[in-house]
Design a protein around this nucleic acid. Structure first.
Lengths: 218, 218
DNA sequence: CATTCTAGATTGAACGCTCATTCTATGTTA
DNA sequence: TAACATAGAATGAGCGTTCAATCTAGAATG
């Protein structure tokens, strides 16, 4: 098929941080360059639509050189997914460590909603979950990370619920977790389907809904 | 270079009913075959991962013959998206016509949740929105249909809200609509990330959350 | 200090394959 | 016969991947 979607030019090679790498080795830097470039290409062309040639150009190196750092294209996908979900993991872990848990969560709704509604973020995350829907290896990575996130979030919710006198069993807590996750993940889709939505009002409705959700009596 | 401005309307040139064919014409049947086969292939391999050869094999015809019914691969994508979202449109329209609106909606939560959690459905719908995130033509179709759905759902919600004494402005109603949409669309992602979730409990939490959402005071 | 040595970094061409799409030729039907 | 349905080979581009050849820079050796 012809290239019908006129995309922004791939970012030119940026050969900045080669010398003076006292910290990370050159290999790590290169690897990170590839991952960043690949994330960009996957975002704008999809996993299968992005070619190694595109990625290598965006990363400022030859196509063949990519294979010094990754076994194949799928390994790049897996690394991006792992990286992305690790970030999410540490985020939720920090959440759980907050003192005033419920209000800390409510306070984070605004930034959380904004993040999910960012079209660039949304595009990549949707791409990842769409790939997980059909690629078993990606699915495994995604599910492992999601399990850890859910466990952390469920424990956080238990603290919130017990502070207001509710003592739930695990299954109920997990269902609460699922619905809360669905609400936020749904925003990824909303940002694509309706890019003009009123973010501030959505945040307010979201905050009320979150409060209701955490205080609902089963 | 890439002067593919080709904004051809996606509707086929409406092939005239060939003389006495009271049934659906052979062309329409063939077209439907292609669409069904393509939906299957897209679901399992993604838009870019599915080849015309695969699709034609699944549809029981030669690869070249596909091009008698569709200009190119992207036109197939667009037709599937249009078909899929038209179905959703008529569904919400029926919703709005219900008599006892709020309880009708709550009653439909169970089947709605089940539908979104079906992995095959979820895979295709995620594929569609992921493609919309990067393909402007698909995005336009998706957004047009979504707008109509939102308007219908917002009016339905207005009826619910006014029945319980709330008189909201359009912006508030639209925010409610957005959050409700996000909740359901988020299930698509959840069904991939956690295929083992407890559907029954999720339905119950969902129903309570929906009720709270519709009764929340801004 | 100058030199060889060496191992990793890097390239770019080449390979075999599959892709979307086109074209031509042959049924099929009315 | 005229018009459409269909197949299947042909085309040229682009794909992921491999690989032999070069470059580079520091360590080892003299």
């Amino acid at each position: 098929m012809k290239n019908m979607i006129d995309t922004a030019p791939e970012t030119p090679p940026m050969p900045e941080p080669l010398s003076s790498s006292s910290e990370s080795s050159r290999a790590e830097t290169r690897r990170a360059q590839i991952l960043a470039a690949a994330a960009d290409c996957f975002r704008s062309h999809g996993f299968h639509g992005a070619s190694i040639a595109q990625i290598s150009k965006a990363a400022g190196m030859s196509a063949g050189h990519i294979y010094h750092y990754f076994d194949n294209k799928e390994a790049i996908i897996a690394a991006i997914v792992a990286q992305d979900l690790e970030r999410f993991l540490s985020l939720t872990a920090g959440f759980r460590a907050a003192r005033n848990v419920q209000e800390a969560m409510i306070g984070c709704v605004a930034s959380g909603v904004e993040e999910k509604l960012d079209p660039a973020t949304a595009g990549l995350k949707l791409e990842i979950v769409a790939e997980a829907a059909r690629n078993p290896r990606v699915a495994e990575i995604v599910r492992d990370a999601d399990r850890a996130c859910r466990e952390s979030l469920a424990e956080t919710l238990r603290a919130v619920r017990e502070a207001s006198g509710h003592h739930d069993d695990d299954a109920t807590l997990q269902a609460l977790t699922e619905v809360m996750a669905a609400m936020f993940e749904g925003l990824l889709s909303r940002s694509i389907r309706n890019p003009d939505l009123d973010r501030d009002r959505v945040v307010r409705v979201f905050q009320t809904a979150m409060r209701d959700l955490m205080n609902q009596t089963p």
